[in-house]
Nucleic acid binder design. Structure first.
Lengths: 349, 349
DNA sequence: ATGAAAGCGCTAACAA
DNA sequence: TTGTTAGCGCTTTCAT
């Protein structure tokens, strides 16, 4: 392997062009107009820079300017439709602004989250976006100390602007649709609608559960404790819980509100062991969207969160002056069963 | 909003502790042993640093050491099961090593890819991983000039070590399974197996097409040009092409090899408009895995690529001395229809 | 066992 | 229109 020569610096270009380092710096940057560098000089310098394969050392620039050109985002995990859509949008918007996105996943672990924020601050990111924060107060404290603008996404914090999905409305509408689609509406345990999946201490789930309760209460079918099965996000536990529920009831309940794709994956693990017939008298909804889940052999009502809208709003907030502590809601979309949905990104493979 | 005080530096800590900046630097770092700093001094300094909420300015350190602690990875897109799994693995492995991962998506655009590599070089990343490169030669040229270790993932380059999925074997096995599962095996157009989706100029697709041809040729059913429909990755075009094909044949063909999840999403758009009965005499396979696709009303043979294995190998390669130009293959896994698959990540929501 | 000083590559004030 | 200079915060010789 041939060892390359040292990367060239503005001093090399200065020497080669006969100009001074500061002239080179200006000529290569945006502000050569107000420094009144002769156009000819600029051209020569740029030509030489290109020839030498020069590129700005961003660490040096960042050190000098005390801004890095990096923008950080923390997400719970990469391997998730919703969050990876956020990443895609975030990257596009950051690049539009000439910034370099750094996306890190916290695995929903507060310690890891703090470590990541600390690291991003060390690298002097210009802004920080935190999606699904596990400890918003701690994040705000760290960002305040570093004088860093930040914004919460999907899960709000009180120390910074926040942009969240309208979970209440999304769940309200979904529950209503389930109610409307049900064939039976008695009051036996089997006739009820059950909520399964998620974590009720989690902000988003709490909102959805509240909406679920409200719709059913308004319909004169107040929710009993056993109708809320917040068994986490793991497919496995959802499989176990839905199986246990079916056992208790003697059949599938008349309706199931599944509170995440991963829980739905688990529910499916059980449903697929049932004869298709037994699904006829049940209505299924899932909070979150997956194109394949939309094509199962039974209809599934889904909710699609607007990841792009969330990030767009978050960027708006963080760039806005004054930098207000407002809470912005972004509405999710209801997806009818078997719809072929056209996402901004699903056209790329 | 309360404006925070300036971030503290080693000079602040030096002043507060009565030690010199260089002592502080050493005490805060790893090499205070060989600098024979008194243990007591180290402790005092660390205590004060913690009190002051000190954290290293990585731009300054990076500038001085000429390494940033950042590791870059380029992927085609975030919003994709396979690539986002790679991101997740990459992040974990980078963090194990105390590095900070920066993941950027190229949208499969060579210009964008070059721009990203350029940017990452500007930030002095320590290593660069390029997944699904569109122009490996250009990437290698840039990395050589910057004396930057890099490795190609999923799509090989000749200028650096490469780790790729064994697309030939994955497709070979999948095609054989389709062949074995078929009920008919005549030679009419309808009795053939069709390959749909992907881009035949793309390395991975080319390997898969080659395997597809070979299996069928070996079975005495040489592949005709019209059996290969490499219509890209967009769901839409797959829908159009499968519909056109069914039109031509008067029914679904006896087998379909779908060459990506997005193409499969499109194929599904058409299949769902057909009576379930008409699928009975067809066997469907998809190169790539999705848990929901595994639960459709008809059996789907799938192939699951080992994203984690790819990244693990890539890291091994890039850290190895000597840094050899070898090509490593990682085998994908065949997933039987309706399998409930337990991925390393699917247990998290 | 510790301090002083140079310098990484860049930008911005200030001079000329 | 351009050059000189200081300094961002850190690490690393080289002295002591």
């Amino acid at each position: 392997m041939i060892r390359a020569t040292r990367k060239s610096t503005i001093y090399d270009i200065a020497r080669l062009s006969g100009a001074s380092p500061s002239t080179v710096s200006a000529a290569l940057g945006e502000n050569w107009r107000k420094r009144r560098i002769a156009e000819a000089t600029v051209e020569t310098i740029r030509r030489i820079a290109t020839e030498q394969g020069y590129s700005t050392n961003m660490q040096a620039r960042g050190l000098r300017k005390a801004r890095s050109g990096l923008v950080g985002m923390v997400i719970p995990l990469h391997d998730n439709r919703f969050f990876s859509s956020m990443s895609q949008s975030f990257e596009a918007l950051a690049r539009d602004r000439g910034q370099v996105p750094v996306i890190a996943s916290s695995m929903r672990d507060p310690t890891e989250e703090r470590r990541i924020v600390e690291t991003l601050i060390s690298y002097a990111v210009d802004y920080l976006f935190i999606a699904g924060a596990t400890d918003p107060e701690a994040v705000t404290a760290m960002c305040r100390a570093a004088d860093l603008r930040h914004v919460f996404v999907d899960l709000p914090g009180r120390g910074a602007p926040s942009v969240v999905s309208d979970n209440y409305k999304g769940a309200y509408d979904l529950t209503q649709r389930l109610l409307a689609d049900r064939t039976i509406s008695g009051q036996t345990p089997r006739d009820r609608i059950y909520f399964i999946g998620g974590d009720d201490t989690d902000y988003a789930s709490a909102c959805r559960i509240a909406a679920f309760r409200d719709v059913l209460a308004n319909a004169g079918q107040p929710v009993l404790p056993e109708q809320i099965i917040a068994c986490g996000y793991a497919p496995r536990s959802a499989t176990r819980e839905i199986a246990a529920l079916c056992d208790r009831l003697g059949s599938l309940p008349s309706g199931v509100f599944v509170n995440s794709l991963t829980a739905f994956e688990g529910v499916l693990g059980h449903l697929s062991s049932l004869p298709l017939e037994s699904l006829r008298n049940s209505v299924i909804g899932c909070y979150d969207y997956d194109p394949f889940a939309a094509y199962l052999q039974f209809p599934v009502h889904m909710v699609r969160q607007d990841a792009h809208g969330l990030i767009r709003e978050a960027y708006r907030m963080i760039e806005e002056d004054p930098y207000d502590l407002v809470l912005t809601m972004v509405e999710p979309e209801q997806i009818a069963p078997r719809t072929y949905y056209d996402s901004p990104f699903s056209d790329r493979g």
